[in-house]
């Protein structure tokens, strides 16, 4: 009925075949330190616009595997369901992405197609598809990713800004701390020992946030401290330039540009420090 609308062909969704059955192969784990197993479930696609979330909801209501075994409901994180909170990130058919924007019509257009779901591998698994991404927030604190304002009393407006500068900052500021860039990064590794986070590679997400705050008129007051943190072990020089991060970022943030810009700033900062002693 809606075929009268000719969509942009590169984004066209195949027509929904309602009533088809799709298989979900899901990596399960009861908790930290427990072994992983796989369960397979069948879901009947009975609504237009079905996505991985709506299928996980269907499984949660009645979790019976293809072998007929009743299991516990699958645990996963989700929030906004419109790809703006970052919560529902997981590895779908081997690719890291948000599960809310993973449409079944794209992933499994035909009867019997299979979709695999795994938790991200660079963060400790909490249970099933849910992982602990505290390290990303820790890194934001480590890099003082904020504007050091003088408090919340009314002191007038902020600095004027050109539309070009705003557009650059806005793009960086859409980062939702989802972790896709870190999952895809060969240099960013699983680290369960929080005491080692400060000496392990921070990754594209935090580096790009350092760039964002170093660009702001007031935020740049803390630039030396940010660059100090990015000069040492785990800093920007640990980047192996694989450029995987920018390919998987759901917000199309120019992460490699950020890494390059921060890399130059760190070099300059190091030289300045050397001559000033």
């Amino acid at each position: 009925m809606i075929a009268t609308i000719s969509a942009n062909p590169t984004h066209a969704t195949p027509p929904t075949k309602l009533g088809r059955k799709v298989r979900f192969r899901i990596k399960r784990c009861e908790g930290p330190g427990k072994p992983s197993t796989w369960n397979t479930y069948t879901v009947t696609i009975d609504q237009k616009g079905a996505n991985v979330i709506s299928c996980l909801q269907q499984i949660a209501a009645n979790p019976v595997t293809v072998e007929g075994t009743r299991t516990t409901p699958v645990v996963w994180d989700s929030g906004c369901l419109e790809e703006v909170c970052g919560a529902c990130t997981m590895v779908i058919n081997g690719k890291v992405r948000q599960s809310c924007s993973a449409l079944i019509d794209h992933l499994a257009p035909n009867e019997g197609d299979e979709i695999s779901l795994e938790p991200m591998s660079k963060f400790p698994v909490i249970r099933d598809l849910s992982v602990d991404r505290q390290r990303m927030f820790h890194n934001l604190a480590r890099l003082k990713a904020w504007v050091p304002i003088d408090g919340t009393y009314a002191l007038g407006g902020g600095p004027k800004e050109s539309p070009e500068a705003q557009e650059t900052r806005y793009a960086l500021s859409t980062c939702m701390t989802c972790g896709c860039c870190l999952e895809a990064c060969p240099q960013f590794n699983l680290e369960t020992d929080a005491s080692k986070w400060d000496s392990s590679f921070v990754g594209a997400q935090a580096i790009s946030q350092a760039r964002l705050f170093n660009m702001h008129e007031t935020g740049k007051e803390l630039a030396p401290a940010r660059l100090d943190a990015l000069m040492g072990p785990g800093g920007v020089s640990d980047c192996g330039n694989s450029q995987n991060c920018v390919k998987v970022c759901p917000k199309h943030i120019p992460l490699t540009e950020s890494i390059a810009a921060v890399g130059r700033a760190v070099t300059l900062h190091a030289i300045t420090k050397f001559f000033r002693g």
Partner: peptide
């Protein structure tokens, strides 16, 4: 609005 501006919110600009 002024406070948010000081905090660095990237409001669209003229």
């Amino acid at each position: 609005i002024d406070l948010l501006d000081r905090m660095g919110v990237p409001f669209n600009r003229t």
